[in-house]
Design a protein around this nucleic acid. Structure first.
Lengths: 242, 242
DNA sequence: CGATAGTTTGACACAGCTCAATAGGCGTGG
DNA sequence: CCACGCCTATTGAGCTGTGTCAAACTATCG
């Protein structure tokens, strides 16, 4: 990962100067003028774990970039059963264009920091800048691929395969040292057991049992309930049913 | 639904003249010149039920519009377990832009007719025409919403709720008389029991048992294994867990 | 140190799976 | 038109993985 601090930094707002979203996120699709324009009305905010970002059926009037932390997207049935349908990590773009009402809940799974923009500005820029829309299309296609991968996990994997798949996914998204070739990984789980259960379509108890099984089989180690060490990612992968 | 046969039809290729995709599908984003251009290299083809359209890990060199019939998108685990991750109806656009290799299988679930275009043409047009990319973004967002709805079904619903949800979805997509306010519906199932099972993350036997339960409870009628009549869509909806 | 929220463990129940047999639909050929 | 064979769907009996309910344990924080 090289730091880009070149001639193009000229005129970039201070807010955006070192922002990850400007490189890997949607802001990478904007030129200096557009960034200045956007930065005028955008603001960083820090959200405590557990806070609701977008309520079900709530009118959404802002979009955001995730700068750090993990956001969980959930859907619920009327009797309270809940399913996590997506996790967003930095530098994902948060928001559902072309629909003022969201059928989805967004909640901070960890402490989260966001850079938020008014809906109207983003929608104007999308009209003016095909590059922005292009970037958004790419992210949406990626999210669709991920959603479909999880459909396989939800529909066809066993509980132990689900838990292994989940750990693998988190390792790849969180641990900075995990390039695809890495053999081991270590990270903090961004989700509670209850969240993991909602993500995998299981109960808390089943998740817990599968984690202890992985632990007694020496595939993972867990300290303080949250900190996970995987010595052999390939062993974990074997258990993921891929 | 009004038939559009107005001044804008001037210069529209014969092939596209009465094509549904020109109104509700992606071709609606193109002007007459672009349609002419596209029509030069596009072709209609009819595909028999069961034929594979896109093999897993196969290089995709064409995109298509679905004109009639149903296409199932599947993913498989190495040991053969399979999950249907999407169904495409007319006038959906079939193909995954920005990725030459597909991790997905596409197969005709019924007899299908397609209008296919070379990959290169579509990709050139996407660069030139923001409207096309915009349309594609909208379809992708819709598919993402659908995928997330199914994640809830896969992860959190019981077998009988799954089967009811499936019937409801098919009724809404297939039966032309089903506007949202309709009370009843009748349609042919586009999928075999095995396909339904792969869609819902169940076994054939469980699907069959739940269908007979719906039948004995007089929620649906089934003739010739395929033809379904739903007298009260709201009763079916009550069983879908929504 | 006590209170609280999150996690683990155990015992048991049941929804959905597996295996096996039967029934029904449909095309082919006599 | 019927007889046959093939494929799909249904039904049954028993098993098992995961859910339910309940209790014990652990971390964290005032």
């Amino acid at each position: 990962m090289t730091v880009r601090q070149d001639i193009h930094s000229a005129g970039i707002p201070a807010l955006c100067q070192s922002c990850e979203a400007r490189h890997r996120g949607v802001c990478g699709a904007l030129d200096a003028d557009q960034l200045v324009d956007l930065a005028k009305t955008s603001s960083r905010r820090s959200i405590p774990s557990g806070a609701e970002l977008v309520g079900d059926a709530e009118v959404v009037d802002s979009y955001s970039n995730v700068l750090s932390g993990v956001v969980k997207l959930t859907k619920s049935l009327s009797d309270g059963r809940q399913q996590i349908v997506g996790l967003q990590f930095a530098p994902d773009f948060l928001g559902r264009p072309f629909k003022v009402e969201s059928a989805i809940n967004a909640e901070a799974a960890t402490e989260v920091s966001l850079c938020s923009f008014p809906r109207t500005i983003i929608e104007r820029m999308m009209k003016e800048s095909p590059a922005l829309e292009h970037r958004l299309l790419k992210q949406t296609l990626t999210e669709l691929d991920e959603a479909r991968d999880w459909m396989v996990t939800l529909g066809r994997k066993t509980a132990s395969e689900k838990v292994a798949s989940f750990l693998l996914m988190i390792a790849r998204n969180i641990d900075p040292t995990v390039d695809p070739a890495a053999r081991s990984a270590t990270f903090d789980l961004p989700l509670t057991r209850a969240d993991i259960a909602d993500f995998l379509g299981l109960t808390i108890e089943t998740v817990s049992r599968q984690l202890t099984r992985l632990r007694t089989d020496r595939v993972i180690r867990i300290d303080n309930n949250r900190h996970v060490t995987v010595d052999s990612l390939s062993r974990l992968e074997q258990r993921s049913g891929a």
